[in-house]
């Protein structure tokens, strides 16, 4: 396993890690460096947290990179800082400290270019239910400045791939949950982004729709797309991810390929060993 020193952000197995970094730096598409994000807690939230603190550090000095053509998984329990990290990358919230670069664009200097370079899919982002998938695709394509002819060709292909074409003129409100998720997925990649960010993409989906999403992620992987995926589902990471970063309490506790992180154990066992090491034996 490759453990990180939380103060320096470096791996324990430094030589091996540095060698890999040299190779990957040539095609790094996303860099998150020393990210920190603190939220103020309302009195109600303070009661729930039971820490007596007025602030919560959601992400604490997080550094990682995603390379072109790989699927990088951010794995962690609820409250580990996965969603906050992805929201910062999508320029929805601003980091207190740190730098984010996507496809060569600095988030600080050009947030619009960063947004244009990534597709973001999360359960929290909803589509206006009054509109049809057909209209929404065209609307978001227009906002991304996609040529109408290109958008039409892309729409036809994606709608056919996900079986949306039969429901293209049905209002989103009248679609099933699974079909809504498919439409959300398609619209998140309307602009053929350099990197696609998925936050818990199978959450709340029935097994059939979850499978469709998983298959699509595999398909994207085969096409050489770059994906940053946050999840707490071990099997999804094992099935799809080239590299994984384990996030606990806002810090990257471990990072590497599955072999590097797990050794001979399953990902689940590796995760809980790490969790116990960091939080204490009786923390579960």
């Amino acid at each position: 396993m490759t453990l990180l020193d939380n103060d320096s952000g470096l791996c324990y197995n430094q030589d091996q890690h540095k060698q890999k970094e040299v190779t990957r730096l040539t095609n790094t598409i996303l860099t998150a460096k020393d990210l920190k994000k603190t939220f103020r807690l309302s009195k109600k939230q303070q009661k729930i947290e039971k820490t007596g603190l007025s602030e919560k550090v959601a992400v604490d000095g997080l550094t990682f990179t995603v390379n072109e053509g790989e699927i990088y998984g951010l794995l962690g329990p609820n409250g580990a800082g996965k969603t906050t990290t992805l929201r910062m990358i999508a320029a929805l919230i601003t980091p207190d400290e740190g730098e984010i670069t996507v496809a060569g664009h600095s988030l600080r200097d050009d947030p619009a270019a960063v947004r244009a370079s990534l597709g973001f899919l999360t359960g929290e982002l909803k589509l206006e239910e009054y509109f049809t998938p057909n209209y929404l695709f065209d609307f978001f394509a227009a906002l991304h400045g996609i040529d109408p002819a290109v958008a039409a060709e892309r729409k036809a292909r994606l709608f056919a791939r996900f079986g949306i074409d039969r429901f293209a003129e049905v209002k989103v409100a009248n679609l099933s949950t699974g079909m809504k998720q498919k439409v959300s997925l398609v619209i998140s990649i309307v602009h053929d982004p350099a990197i696609i960010v998925f936050d818990e993409p199978t959450n709340g989906l029935d097994v059939l729709t979850a499978r469709v999403v998983t298959d699509f992620l595999e398909e994207l992987k085969k096409e050489g797309k770059t994906i940053l995926l946050s999840t707490h589902i071990f099997s999804l990471v094992e099935k799809l991810c080239d590299r994984v970063g384990i996030l606990i309490d806002g810090k990257l506790a471990a990072e590497g390929t599955l072999a590097e992180v797990c050794g001979k154990r399953s990902l689940e066992d590796a995760f809980f060993d790490l969790y116990r090491d960091l939080k204490g034996g009786d923390s579960l």
Binding site: A91, L92, R115, L125, E128, F140
Partner: peptide, 17 residues
Amino acid sequence: GEKERGTIATLLITPIA
């Protein structure tokens, strides 16, 4: 309404200023 339904966030992640 858009805030409440979460649709404004979908707009905010596009490159629109």
